[in-house]
């Protein structure tokens, strides 16, 4: 018995050691960049020690002010928040209508939206989308992208909202109808508060995606550097600097990643949930 227990304990210790090793490896790129972001350029180039010999927090001030990261952060915040609010609204309303609404053509519309999930055009439809946006005079700002996010929605989110609402008892809706609540009134007054967990998940994922999104934002803000987001700013900084100026780029990297890491620490339950959905988003 005691021998079995000993083996068991050994096994647990092994698991802990291996997992800790993995965690260190996974977090290493971030930790290394964080430590290096406080070094002078000379020390970064020498690349000797892990921690800086002298800490230089002014690297961050430089990135924040000179490299315009304050502006980028502000833009990103607006872009990500607007995208989040609109995709929460769009997807949850859509899910509700598909769950509770009765109207001709429901099945057809639902089927068509589902079918688009399987079209694997990837980034190749960006050009025509940009043409449409330029017709709407929205091709030079992030608002066009917010509009696209609102109007296309994500089928994975709609599935989730729909399934959740279908699991709620219909009696609540009927009681509200008798009390004189309209169809959409029921959604905003009764259903929306009930589907809060899913709303939180959608909010977290759409915020994260918008925050990290860079290909399309880069295209629309190309001629308008003032409107760039953090991800775009970071990328263009990497592309334009002649010699890699790590003492500016590393603080920039940390600035762009830190807000989401902080949000992640507090809301990681929703992040983990949302990723399962995001993977099948298509």
């Amino acid at each position: 018995m005691s021998r079995g227990k000993k083996i068991h304990n050994l096994q647990i210790i092994c698991i802990y050691v291996v997992l800790t090793l993995f965690v260190v490896c996974v977090l290493f790129p971030l930790l290394y960049a964080f430590a290096s972001s406080f070094k002078t350029s000379g020390e970064i180039l020498a690349g000797k020690n892990f921690w800086p010999t002298e800490w230089h927090p002014e690297n961050y001030l430089e990135a924040w002010n000179e490299a315009n990261f304050s502006q980028y952060t502000w833009n990103t915040l607006i872009y990500a928040s607007a995208t989040m609010v609109l995709s929460v609204l769009g997807n949850s309303v859509c899910g509700y209508v598909f769950a509770r609404g009765e109207f001709p053509g429901k099945k057809i519309i639902y089927g068509m939206k589902t079918a688009t999930m399987f079209l694997a055009f990837g980034s190749t439809t960006m050009y025509p989308t940009l043409q449409i946006l330029s017709k709407l005079h929205l091709n030079k700002s992030l608002w066009g992208l917010i509009l696209v996010a609102f109007c296309t929605g994500s089928m994975a989110f709609i599935f989730m909202v729909r399934a959740f609402i279908l699991s709620l008892p219909r009696e609540i809706d009927e009681a509200a109808t008798i009390d004189g609540c309209s169809f959409m009134g029921i959604f905003f007054r009764i259903t929306l508060p009930l589907i809060r967990p899913i709303i939180a998940t959608i909010a977290v994922l759409s915020f994260k995606d918008a925050w990290n999104d860079y290909l399309f934002p880069m295209i629309v803000t190309f001629s308008n550097p003032e409107k760039r987001t953090l991800a775009v700013g970071l990328y263009s900084m990497q592309q334009t600097s002649v010699a890699a100026d790590w003492s500016k780029m590393l603080p920039g990297t940390i600035i762009s990643a830190l807000p989401l890491i902080v949000v992640y620490i507090f809301l990681n339950k929703y992040f983990v949930e949302s990723l399962a959905m995001g993977a099948v988003k298509g």
Partner: peptide, 26 residues
């Protein structure tokens, strides 16, 4: 939670981290 952390990093930031780790000199 710790293993999930990379999923919140943007691809541009990750590009920075990896090109810093894998740079040629030092």
């Amino acid at each position: 939670s710790l293993l999930f952390l990379p999923t919140v990093i943007s691809v541009t930031a990750a590009g920075m981290l990896f090109s810093y780790l894998f740079r040629t000199y030092n």
